[in-house]
Computed example of a mutant assay.
Amino acid sequence: MTNYRRYRIEGGCYFFTVNLAERKRQLLVEHIGLLRAAFREVMVAHPFKVEAVVVLPDHLHTIWTLPEDDTDFSLRWRQIKSAFSRGLVKNDRISASRARKQERGIWQRRFWEHAIRDSNDFQRHVDYIHYNPVKHGYVGQVTDWPYSSFHRFVHLGYLPVDWAGGAAEGDDLELE
């Protein structure tokens, strides 16, 4: 088994991508209330700040900032995935390997993280998050996707409601 090394910074700010195991399922938007409840539950026990987020049918992207003395984002993801999974009806197909490990087979086992380096890196990732539903063809404009922190950014005056309204796929909103 591969030994993954995670770059951990106390109080760090991270961009994450987390996927369902079966990418054709739409569990995350079909059960958005359950996902929100899982986030809230974990945030009470293990605080973190959600800087930006977008939830798509089969995956999500988010930026978190951890408390100053904390590096354990893996614990938080494990608990969020577990809380969400516990709330779903048990009708998913699972492999023998997942059954041995008492996993449901809803989530991909791993997630992708990137430590945010500076304010430009942060802004690029926020833009990527907010533009993602357009990139995947779910909506024509960022404002039309309901499961995004974009609406909070508009409410707070950080972005105009028509932000990226005329951007074509690939216009400075892709991450390398």
Score class of each variant (00 low, 15 high):
residue 127 D to K: 12
residue 127 D to S: 08
residue 127 D to F: 07
residue 127 D to M: 07
residue 127 D to W: 07
residue 128 Y to Q: 06
residue 128 Y to C: 01
residue 128 Y to D: 01
residue 128 Y to G: 00
residue 129 I to S: 02
residue 129 I to D: 00
residue 131 Y to W: 13
residue 131 Y to R: 14
residue 131 Y to T: 13
residue 131 Y to H: 12
residue 132 N to Y: 06
residue 132 N to C: 12
residue 132 N to T: 04
residue 132 N to P: 10
residue 132 N to K: 14
residue 133 P to W: 07
residue 133 P to R: 15
residue 133 P to Q: 10
residue 134 V to E: 08
residue 134 V to S: 11
residue 134 V to L: 12
residue 134 V to H: 14
residue 135 K to G: 12
residue 135 K to L: 12
residue 135 K to C: 14
residue 135 K to N: 14
residue 135 K to Q: 15
residue 135 K to H: 15
residue 136 H to C: 06
residue 137 G to Y: 08
residue 137 G to V: 14
residue 138 Y to M: 05
residue 138 Y to D: 02
residue 139 V to L: 14
residue 139 V to M: 14
residue 140 G to T: 15
residue 140 G to S: 15
residue 140 G to Q: 15
residue 140 G to F: 11
residue 140 G to D: 15
residue 141 Q to K: 15
residue 141 Q to M: 13
residue 141 Q to C: 10
residue 141 Q to E: 14
residue 141 Q to F: 06
residue 141 Q to V: 04
residue 141 Q to R: 15
residue 142 V to F: 02
residue 142 V to M: 05
residue 142 V to R: 07
residue 142 V to G: 06
residue 143 T to D: 08
residue 143 T to A: 12
residue 143 T to L: 11
residue 144 D to S: 11
residue 144 D to Y: 03
residue 144 D to P: 01
residue 144 D to N: 10
residue 144 D to Q: 14
residue 145 W to M: 13
residue 145 W to V: 04
residue 145 W to H: 04
residue 145 W to S: 05
residue 145 W to L: 06
residue 145 W to R: 07
residue 146 P to I: 04
residue 146 P to Y: 04
residue 146 P to S: 04
residue 147 Y to L: 02
residue 147 Y to N: 03
residue 147 Y to H: 10
residue 148 S to N: 06
residue 148 S to L: 03
residue 148 S to C: 10
residue 148 S to F: 02
residue 148 S to T: 09
residue 149 S to G: 12
residue 149 S to C: 07
residue 149 S to D: 09
residue 149 S to I: 03
residue 150 F to S: 01
residue 150 F to R: 02
residue 151 H to S: 09
residue 151 H to N: 07
residue 151 H to Y: 11
residue 151 H to C: 10
residue 151 H to I: 05
residue 153 F to W: 09
residue 153 F to R: 01
residue 153 F to E: 01
residue 153 F to H: 10
residue 153 F to P: 00
residue 153 F to S: 02
residue 154 V to N: 02
residue 154 V to M: 09
residue 154 V to T: 09
residue 154 V to L: 04
residue 155 H to Y: 08
residue 155 H to V: 04
residue 156 L to N: 07
residue 156 L to I: 09
residue 157 G to P: 08
residue 157 G to W: 03
residue 158 Y to P: 01
residue 158 Y to H: 09
residue 159 L to M: 06
residue 159 L to T: 00
residue 159 L to Q: 03
residue 159 L to D: 00
residue 159 L to I: 01
residue 159 L to K: 03
residue 159 L to G: 00
residue 159 L to Y: 04
residue 160 P to W: 08
residue 160 P to L: 12
residue 161 V to T: 08
residue 161 V to K: 11
residue 162 D to E: 15
residue 162 D to L: 06
residue 162 D to M: 09
residue 162 D to C: 05
residue 163 W to Q: 03
residue 163 W to S: 01
residue 163 W to M: 04
residue 163 W to A: 00
residue 163 W to Y: 10
residue 163 W to V: 00
